[in-house]
Computed example of a mutant assay.
Amino acid sequence: MDLLGSKQMQRKLAEMGQKGNRLQNKALRASGQVLSEEMSERVKRSNKDHAHTEDHIVLGRVKKDDFGGKHIEVGPDKEVAWRSYFLVYGTSKMRPHDYMTPSYQSKTDEIYEAQAAVMKKGLGL
C-alpha cells in the first residue's frame, strides 16, 4: 500500500492544516508501535542481570526531514543502544544477530495498514 502516492489523501491533509499534521503524527506513532513490538520479540535476550534491549525499545518523536517528509525513529533507548550495536553488527568474537531489519521486513504490510487505518479514520474515508 503506497500512502505517499495518494494525492487525494495528501490534498485532504493539506486542507486540514494543523489537524492534518496531528493526524500524520498519530499514524506514524501507530506504525512505530507495530515495529517496536516486533523488535522486542526478535531481539536476543541474555541471561545476565542487567538492562536488556528487549525492555528498552522505544518510539522517538516525529521529526521532519529536509524535504518536508516526516519520520519516527524506533529502536533501543540510550541506556542500551551501545550494546545493541554489537548485537546488530557483531564483534570479532560474535556473529551479528540483526533484529531490526528482519523486524521491518516481516511487518511492512502491518506497518502500512496501521498508518492507513489511522488516516482513514481521521479523514472519514
Rank of each mutant, 00 (worst) to 15 (best):
D2K: 14
L3K: 09
G5P: 13
S6W: 14
Q8R: 14
M9H: 00
M9I: 05
M9S: 01
Q10T: 13
R11L: 08
K12G: 00
L13G: 00
G17Q: 03
G17F: 02
G20Y: 00
N21G: 12
R22E: 15
L23T: 08
L23S: 07
Q24H: 01
N25D: 15
A27G: 11
L28M: 12
L28H: 10
L28E: 09
R29T: 12
R29L: 12
A30G: 09
S31H: 06
S31L: 09
S31Q: 09
G32D: 08
G32S: 12
G32A: 07
L35D: 09
S36A: 15
S36W: 08
S40Y: 05
S40Q: 14
R42S: 12
S46L: 14
N47H: 15
K48E: 14
K48M: 11
A51V: 13
T53V: 15
I57E: 04
G60E: 05
G60S: 07
V62W: 04
D66A: 12
G68P: 01
H71N: 02
H71C: 00
E73Q: 09
G75I: 08
P76D: 02
P76F: 01
D77R: 03
V80F: 04
V80Q: 04
V80R: 03
A81C: 00
W82T: 10
R83I: 11
S84R: 02
Y85G: 04
Y85W: 09
F86W: 10
V88W: 01
G90V: 02
G90N: 04
T91C: 07
S92Y: 09
S92M: 11
R95S: 09
R95F: 06
P96A: 08
P96H: 01
D98P: 09
Y99T: 12
M100A: 14
S103Y: 06
T108P: 00
I111R: 01
I111Q: 00
I111H: 02
E113F: 06
A114Y: 01
A117P: 00
V118L: 02
M119S: 03
K120V: 04
K120W: 05
K121P: 07
L123R: 04
L123F: 11
